[in-house]
Structure formats: C-alpha cells, structure tokens
Nucleic acid binder design. Structure first.
Length: 848
RNA sequence: GCGGGCGUGAUGGAAUGGUAGACAUAUCGGACUUAAAAUCCGAAGGGCUUUGUCCCGUGUGGGUUCGAGUCCCACCGCCCGUACCA
C-alpha cells in the first residue's frame, strides 16, 4: 500500500485484535490489574463527539496500561432506563424497550469502528432483567439493613395531566405538555438513608487524592456540614413552641421576625381552618420543586398573627411569618430572620416593612445599610448588639460564644446539621427498575421474596400494547400487573408500581462489570481482584449526584456484603473531561426567528444550497436543537477513526472544552498521512550518519515527554511533542537503522491515540507481533540531559540577555558570567547590583 | 439566588512562581507544476519620527514577590450543578 487508507487498515486491525482476543480482561497473578472506566452512555441512538472524546481518553489509558504490562479491565455498557424512551414512545408510538434495544444496537455499531480496546464480552444494559433483577436483590438487602425507608416528599404535580413531572418537564413553572401551572404536592416515596453517612462521605473526601480538588469541594459544600444553634421560640399564646436552627446565632439580637416553611406543621394547621392562609400556602406551592426555582422566585410572606418571645428578652415580641423560601427539608423548617446580615431576609424585611437592626458593623467605618452586611465567619467585625459581648471578634468566635451562652443558660443547644438530604428513589414511571415490594392489606409493605426476582416489567397490557400516549404511569393503570400475592400471608395483594430513579442503575454498574453475568449482584473473588476502578473518566456535570450516590452505594454494598472493604471508595482516580463544542450557523426566517444549519450545509460562511450568508455564533456545546453537531460516523467514513481520535485529543487540554473544526479534522488527517508516508519512505538500508545520535536523543526525549503526558492526562501536550518529533524525523539526515528505530518508537507512542495507523507502521517496519501488546518504550536517562543549557538573564524581572553555560556550572560562576554580559552592564548603568538570584538550570535575575 | 470552574495572538491552545505565545489552524510569501491539487521551505502578538535583545501585552482593577498567565482580594463575562435530564 502506498497511501494511507484508513478505511482499509482500520477494519483489518480491528479484526486482528478481535482474533487475538487481547482486550478480553483476564485475571492472573503475574501482572498487576488496571480497571479503567468511562461513564457509560445513555442509548440515545447516535454517538456524538462527546462520546468519542470520553471513550478515546479512556482508551488511551487502557492501551497504555496494556503496553506497560497490566491485566486491563475496560468494559462498556448502557445506562438504558430513563425518560427519553418513554418520551419517544409518547411522541411516535412504539415501545420503550424496543426503542432502547434498537438504539443500543445502533450505537454499538457506531462505536465499534472507533477501535476501542473494550472487552465487549462484559457488555450489559441496565434494562436487562439480568441486571435490574440483581439491583432488586440489592434493594432488598439494603431494606433489610435499614438503609431504605418511606416518607413523604414533594413532587411536581401537573393538575391537568394528573401526573408527576420531572424537573426538566417543568418550564417556567408550567407543565411542558399541558402548560398548566405546576403544583408542589406530597407523595409517599422510598428513600435511601444517605444522610446517615453524611459525616463519613464528607470525611472520606480527604482520601480521594486523585480526584479533582474542585469535585471534592463541590461534594463538601453539597453535604454542607454546619454547626449551629437550635432553640425554641415560645409563643405568646402558650401553645407549642417553634424550634428554629441557625448557623448565625451571633445575629440573634438582630432578629426581626420568625419565618416558617409553607409545609411547616404550624402552617398546615392554620391552612386547615384559615382560608386566607390556605390561599397563601396554595400560592406558595405553585411552581416547580427545584432549589433554583424556590431561591430565585419572588419572596412571598404572610403574617400569621402568631407572636413569639425573644429568648433573651421576654418583653420583645417577634411576628411569625410563613415564607415561601424556607425549605421544610433543611434544619427545622423554621428560622429567625436577621435582615441586617442576610440578603434574603433583608429583601423580605424591606418588602414587608419589618425592622432591620444590625448586630455588628465593619471594624473600620460604620453602618448605613443599603444591603445586608454579610462578612464570612472568619472575618473580624465590631459587635454592637452581640449578646455575647460588645467587642471586635470573628463571626466564628461570636457564634461559639452564643452557643456556649445558650447552653449554659439552658435555652438552646449546639447542633451539627447537614444540608445533604436523603435520596428519594421512587419514580412514578414505567421505564425503570420496579421496586420489589408488595402492599398487603393485612401485612402492610412487604418485601418481595428473592426467589421471585426479577420483578419483570410487563411488555403489554391485557394482550394489547401499552398506550404510552396517556399521561401517567402505565404500571399504575395496568389491568393485571399490579395483582400479586403477599409474600408473607399469601393473600391477594398489590405490587408497588413506582420504579427506581435511574441514578440507582448507575450507582453500582462499575461493580457489576467485574462479574457482569453472575446470578448474584457481585462475585467476591472477582470484586476483590478488579476493584477499585483505577481510573474513572466522565463529565463534570456528574461531579455531585452520580458520584456521591456511587460512593454511597459502595458503602451500602459493603454493609450488605456485596463489595470488599477496600472498595468503600470505588473510584481511586477521577478525571472530568470537557465538552466538544462547535460554532453555530444561523440565518433568519421571514419573522426574524433564527433558523439553524448543520455544519455540512455551510461553506466559507455561506449556505451551500443558496449562497445566503450565515451568522456565525461562537462555539457552544454540540446540540441537536442548534444543529451545531458533527456526526462521528461521517467523520470516520471521511477520514477514519484514527483521525477522529487524534483530533479530539489534540487541540485542548482534556479537562477543557474542545472546539471541533472541519479544518482541524482535515489537518489531523493530513498529519497522520504524513506520518505514514514518512515511515513508508524510510530506506532501512541507508548507512549510519553523524545525525543518528541527535535523532535518537530527540527520540528519548519524546518517549519521556509523551509517557509523562499520557500518565498525567496531558494528551494535548503529548500530541504537540509527537508533532515536534515527527518534524524532527522528517528533517533528519540520520541513517536507515536510526530512522527505522525512531519511526517504530513514534508509532508506539502514537498507538494509544491512533492504534490502527500505528499497527500498520509497525508491520511496515517489521516490528514484532502486535504493537498493541508490545512493551512500552522506556527512555534512556543519559540521553535526556543536554551538556550545555541556555539561561535567560533578567534585570529587575525583565529579560535582557541569555547565556549558554555548562549544565552543572556552580552558582557563583553563573553569577559572574551573567554580570559580565554587556546588555546586563548596560541595564545596570554602572551601578552595582543589589542582589543576584540564580535559580540553577532556570534563570538569573539581577536586582538593580 | 447558592455552590464550583474557566478567561492567554485572527483561532485552538503551551508555559513545576522563573525566556509568555511551544504545537497546531487560518493567513501571507517562496519552491515544485503548463496550471491546479498534493507536497516541501519560510514569515508572523501589538506598537514605533527612535526597528532597539526598545516599549506595551495573559478579561478589568488592586495586592504579595527579586520575579505573577500562574498566588491573594474585588469586579465583569461565560460554563457546569442546584437533589425527578442523563
């Protein structure tokens, strides 16, 4: 073959790898194991460039680890339950199961040409009964272990469609289909007791050294451990006191009202017999359940008429307001408002004419409050109404003093609370894992027997296809599926019709990959060998929920005997990669509304079809609605998988977004063609020359740099080195043996990124066996060090000259040499230097 | 609103607190060619009455340091998450 033909060589080498079975994960005592996992995809039906980037990164690691002598586990599966399948069935008929498995087949077909080193024998989908049946077994074990319980929780209720909506189905507080204003309504739901592990999940973050600091910080803030004061306001009418929790008890003398959640028992009691309260509370319940909607919505309040006494001054009465921004889920569902030191309270007080009384002010300069004064607890402030002392102290000190005083006087106690709430897992939907419990009139809620698992999803209803166009949960209205017998007493009973949150499915799949087809959730021997995941790779959007839930599940699975103790933190190292973005091309229709165009419809700023100029909007995440998508399948057919792989790794650091450009893809292809040509044109018989050692020296530097780049996720930097080394090789006048060696090493260093091309070059230059299993090259340390180095010389931090010195010249000599330079003398202008800083091997700075 | 992150040439980006702009794209010039494509070679942050190892320059404004793209503070813009999208 004379030219680089990706289509030909890629199919050939994929078959060769398959035949050799080199990607099938095997346990053996003679090698260390390495488990690399990318977050598994949702089977939408099409792979996109984000997938290509994610799986290519994992593949680079997997192939590198294979070449460095590891037993590698690199599996793939499908996060296959979830709403889109039901939405598709709703929109265009069909069955979620058929849609999902069809999509999986399509995506697998699109993914395989990428040449990923995946052990496909371990593939599964979370909607396989084999998988979700084991998930039901896990659920029952967790129920038995006391990690699951039922309580009420609020959901988005669409009063027209009479159905529960997901947050994304609530748009501006209205149902996406009905357009009706959504209400917050309570339902009895199943919960995982993740809050029991709040402290442990927080403390263990410290041990996750190979996780991005930002992810650990986000989880820490999410768990939200706080130390505060809990105490009760006594009511002037002598009835039940109101318990409040505050993290800023030092502001108690600035209290101007007590606020309670619309879901607080007092509010509920008032609602029952006061129409005005009922009307207000109903108003509060309008709109979605998200924290964002609640926090950014208009602050509403209602004076209940109830009055309470200030704990430090019984003659001081405070009004009790129902306020829509107070969450029943956090603290006690009641607060005291201190408008001077909380912006939300400030806005509320301003709106309703409540007093604003500062308890402290800046150390320098006085008050005059146009907005709340909210310094951090670590800052020192001057207390003017600090009941614990009129002095300058930090918020922290004042808070501690307040708690101490409250405890000493017996009216309050220091309390630690967490923001983290228990994980509600019930979903009123069809396409999910059925919750394996039974409701019996006599026995109550009874777990299904393990031998009856899996509780299978019904495909039909009464011999007819399920009608997904009707809003609501088909399981709930199914004519027969709900009917069952009570596992305890054997009488007729009803199945639970809620299914599990899809986060449950993705919270233990990493463990299942170690024994994907076992008839228990895991197999001890396999889990012991393969866990933990050595490198986990996925999007930053999963920084909190998915990763926290997975950490919880690893603990729960340990408690229930499904994972070894060492797997308590399932992911040893985490890498969060950026998105693939693309420019957006738009024109306007007759009504000036934007019309989007696919990249392939546009050429040099104009529509190919009509020649109309397009507006170019800067790069954004690829999305179907904006049409700024590039289909990996068409890129692969145009340039080959190696080009796609090379490009997504090359231009940007992996943790940042990468912009896909047609020019960049073309350039990547040209470069790979060039590497192939360079290798093909080497005359291996050409005699050795004086340039051999220089080429080999560069080769060893390249081995060193690329190895370092691959190990530290510096793929783009590694590729830059590979470009540079390719240029060196192209220009080198070295002999055939040296060039052959350099090209073989180049192919090896590129192999994790462009495995097919590398195999081809390897074969061309008569390398032994498959490059995929050839031992990774190691650099010769002696070849990495240059004898002389160039030192820049700064005067007052500005670069003025440079000198060339032997690499181990001592400091005093370097200083002497630097001062002797004419440019330095000129800059000094005759004056003696005040100080000379010599950083060996780095820089010289002369301070004038 | 709250929590987290990011911001460097025309463009993507490089740079353990130590020569800002590696490597690449687009552009321009040259070689080869009847011509084009492909390929190869080269130029290139901005500025200038001073072409100088000159001045300015890493979102904006301050600070720490012999030295700041990098560390600290404030602000602006964008992105992610915000518990039922996955």
């Amino acid at each position: 073959m004379s030219r680089y033909s990706a289509a030909e060589i890629e199919a050939k080498w994929q078959q060769a790898w398959d035949k050799a079975g080199i990607f099938t994960a095997k346990r053996s005592a003679d090698k260390p194991k390495y488990y690399v996992l990318e977050m598994f995809p949702y089977p939408s039906g099409r792979i996109h460039m984000g997938h290509v980037r994610n799986y290519t990164m994992g593949d680079v690691i997997a192939r590198y680890k294979l070449a460095t002598g590891h037993n590698v586990l690199h599996p793939m599966g499908w996060d296959a339950f979830g709403m889109p399948a039901e939405n598709a069935a709703m929109a265009s008929g069909g069955h979620p199961k058929d849609w999902t498995y069809g999509n999986i087949a399509d995506m697998r077909g699109q993914m395989k040409p990428l040449g990923l080193s995946i052990d496909w024998s371990r593939e599964f989908a979370t909607c396989d009964p084999e998988y979700y049946g084991q998930q039901q077994a896990l659920f029952l074990d967790m129920l038995e272990a006391g990690l699951v319980y039922r309580k009420n929780a609020v959901v988005n209720w669409d009063p027209v469609d009479m159905t529960v909506l997901a947050n994304e189905q609530v748009i501006d507080g209205k149902g996406w289909r009905s357009g009706a204003v959504v209400e917050r309504r309570e339902l009895t739901q199943w919960f995982f007791k993740i809050s029991d592990m709040a402290e442990e999940l927080l403390d263990a973050l410290d041990g996750l050294e190979n996780w991005p600091a930002k992810v650990r910080l986000m989880q820490e803030n999410w768990i939200g451990k706080s130390r505060g004061l809990q105490f009760a306001f006594t009511r002037t009418d002598g009835t039940d006191p109101i318990e409040v929790y505050t993290t800023r008890p030092d502001t108690l003398m600035g209290a101007s009202f007590v606020g309670i959640s619309p879901d607080h028992p007092i509010a509920k009691a008032l609602e029952a017999d006061n129409p005005q309260v009922a009307e207000f509370v109903a108003e509060c319940r309008k709109g979605g359940t998200t924290e964002e909607a609640i926090e950014t919505g208009e602050k509403l309040g209602f004076d209940t008429g109830i009055r309470v006494k200030h704990p430090l001054d019984p003659s001081w009465e405070l009004p009790v307001w129902i306020a829509n921004f107070i969450l029943m889920d956090y603290g006690t569902g009641a607060i005291f408002g201190c408008p001077a030191h909380d912006q939300r309270d400030f806005d509320f007080a301003t709106k309703y004419g409540l007093p604003i009384k500062p308890t402290f002010e800046p150390v320098e300069g006085g008050a005059g409050l146009k907005e709340a004064f909210t310094p951090t607890k670590a800052e020192k402030v001057r207390y003017i109404a600090g009941f614990a002392g009129k002095e300058v102290q930090t918020g922290e000190e004042a808070v501690n003093a307040a708690v101490d005083k409250a405890e000493a006087e017996g009216w309050g106690r220091g309390v630690t609370k967490f923001r983290l709430r228990d994980w509600g897992l019930s979903r009123q939907r069809y396409w999910g894992c059925p919750i394996p419990v039974v409701h019996c009139a006599d026995c109550g809620v009874v777990p299904e027997k393990k031998e009856n698992l899996p509780v299978l999803l019904p495909y039909d209803e009464g011999g007819k296809p399920i009608d997904f166009s009707i809003p609501g949960n088909p399981l709930d209205r199914h004519p027969t599926w709900r009917d069952c017998t009570c596992p305890t007493c054997g009488k007729p009973a009803r199945r639970e019709t809620d299914t599990m949150d899809t986060f449950v499915d993705s919270s233990w799949y990493y463990a299942r990959f170690t024994a994907p087809h076992a008839d228990t959730p895991t197999v001890a021997e396999e889990a012991e060998y393969w866990m933990n995941v050595d490198q986990y790779i996925g999007g930053i959007e999963h920084a909190i929920l998915h990763l926290l839930y997975s950490r919880f599940f690893a603990r729960a699975m340990q408690i229930t005997g499904h994972l070894p103790k060492k797997a308590i933190e399932p992911f040893d190292a985490l890498f969060t990669q950026g998105m693939v973005t693309h420019e957006i091309y738009q024109t306007r229709d007759a009504n000036d509304r934007p019309v989007y165009h696919l990249p392939e419809e546009v050429e040099s700023g104009k529509l190919k079809a009509t020649g109309e100029a397009v507006e170019i909007i800067p790069s954004a995440k690829m999305s179907k609605s904006k049409k700024n998508v590039v289909d990996p399948v068409s890129i692969i057919s145009q340039f080959g998988a190696d080009t796609a792989r090379w490009f997504v790794l090359s231009d940007s650091p992996p943790e940042r977004d990468v912009e896909w450009t047609a020019a960049g893809a073309e350039a990547a292809f040209k470069h790979l063609s060039r590497v192939y040509r360079l290798a093909a044109e080497i005359d291996v018989e050409a005699p050795a020359t004086d340039d051999d050692s220089a080429l080999l020296r560069e080769m060893h530097k390249c081995i060193h740099d690329v190895t370092g780049g691959v190990e530290s996720f510096g793929f783009n930097a590694a590729i830059a080195k590979l470009y540079a080394f390719t240029n060196t090789l192209a220009k080198s006048k070295a002999g055939g043996a040296a060039k052959r060696q350099a090209a073989l090493v180049l192919a090896q260093l590129m192999a994790p990124m462009t495995p097919h091309l590398s195999e081809e070059i390897w074969t061309l230059l008569k390398g032994e066996g498959l490059i995929a299993t050839a031992a990774w090259p190691t650099p010769d340390a002696a070849m990495l060090i240059d004898d002389t180095i160039t030192l820049p010389i700064q005067v007052n931090g500005k670069r003025r000259a440079e000198i060339s010195v032997p690499k181990d010249m001592d400091k005093a000599e370097v200083e002497k040499a630097a001062l002797a330079v004419e440019a330095v003398q000129k800059a000094l202008d005759g004056a003696a230097p005040k100080k000379v800083i010599v950083v060996p091997g780095r820089i010289v700075n002369v301070v004038a």
